[in-house]
Design a protein around this nucleic acid. Structure first.
Lengths: 199, 199
DNA sequence: GTCTATATTGGGATAGAC
DNA sequence: GTCTATCCCAATATAGAC
């Protein structure tokens, strides 16, 4: 406890670095976000920055981990106010407003595809968690009659995750597309077929 | 015509390079596929290889362009034997058997997200073509009653493309998942809701 | 068409002082 | 915790000979 002050400072600095990283990516692009650029953005030297995060990849993974935590907290906080899927839609829409975030996610996840990559475990775990979470929601919805009964919840969860991933690539290529809208379309397909439309 | 021989040799060499590129990526990973590695694989020097393709990115884009051409030709060839969607499913399944190809696609498309990237135009055009092709098929299916009538064909086409993209990332992270199976699931969701299941 | 050699750059990481 | 200095490496691309 005697070191509370110093510890708190370290935490604050880390946060500052994570925020600055997004600014740099937004400004210079993921490719231009070298350790030096990142360090400059927070007024540190290269070595100074690497004191907080051993490598660039770890730093980047930390940005995404923090985003996930923030997003999840917000969703839980609003629990009940809207459906899980609506919350999901909103999260996507909000993240699309943070320049650099999507680019970071797409580029880093593509690289972390390599099992040797420092962020590989992070993404693998993230996928597992996400799939379980969504599959659980789907099962509840199926029980409540708000999701098609003929779905494999696990498989549909994977579909949702994959679609969200793919839309981010498409959005970066052409930012005029509306990711949230497209995801909504997929989610709509998971609903029970509308009442037999008075045949 | 007098230069037919030399020209033909150049073409053959290019083909050889494209094939070797996939071998290198499969062996060393996308990250390990430097111009030098690529050159070694065909028994050329760095400079020798760059004589055929100005830059590494152009070479890589050429690999994917060739794949698209091959895939499209095969699909057209089998026209009528199976539905468009079944052909799509088969194409995905087959490509998953070419190690390196998916990795190349995922990594390069993520990088080409940057408008300045040499392969950006290739991917943008590819998306446009694909979307039109699939949207057209969907409209035909709607007219024939084999696709839900309440779909926006353009939007559904985007959904299919995005899902295919995202599944490739997921597959690289965990190659035990069955991409074709997941795509089939999505396509099934686009079918008209099964006959009202004798209510 | 192909090679050798090299220009040039830029990056991540580390050693060691303060 | 933070900096300066530097190391070290790799990679792309080009120049120019054969």
């Amino acid at each position: 406890m005697a070191r509370r002050g110093a510890y708190a400072k370290g935490v604050a600095k880390r946060e500052e670095i994570l925020t600055a990283a997004l600014e740099v990516i937004a400004r210079e692009g993921y490719g231009g976000a070298s350790v030096r650029e990142l360090a400059d953005a927070v007024g540190l030297s290269q070595a100074g920055l690497l004191h907080y995060f051993g490598t660039k990849e770890e730093l980047f993974a930390a940005v995404l981990r923090k985003r996930d935590e923030t997003d999840l907290a917000r969703v839980e906080e609003r629990m009940g106010e809207s459906s899980t899927f609506e919350a999901f839609r909103q999260t996507i829409a909000r993240n699309a407003d943070v320049p650099g975030l999507i680019q970071l996610y797409v580029r880093l996840s593509a690289e972390a595809t390599d099992p040797e990559h420092p962020a590989h475990a992070f993404f693998a775990e993230r996928t597992r968690t996400f799939r379980e979470l969504v599959a659980g929601d789907l099962r509840r919805m199926q029980a409540a009659g708000t999701a098609r009964a003929d779905l494999d919840a696990e498989q549909a969860a994977m579909l949702i995750l994959a679609t969200a991933d793919g839309l981010q690539v498409q959005w970066l290529m052409d930012p005029t597309i509306d990711m949230a809208e497209h995801v909504s379309e997929l989610l709509r397909l998971l609903e029970p077929p509308a009442a037999p439309t008075e045949a």
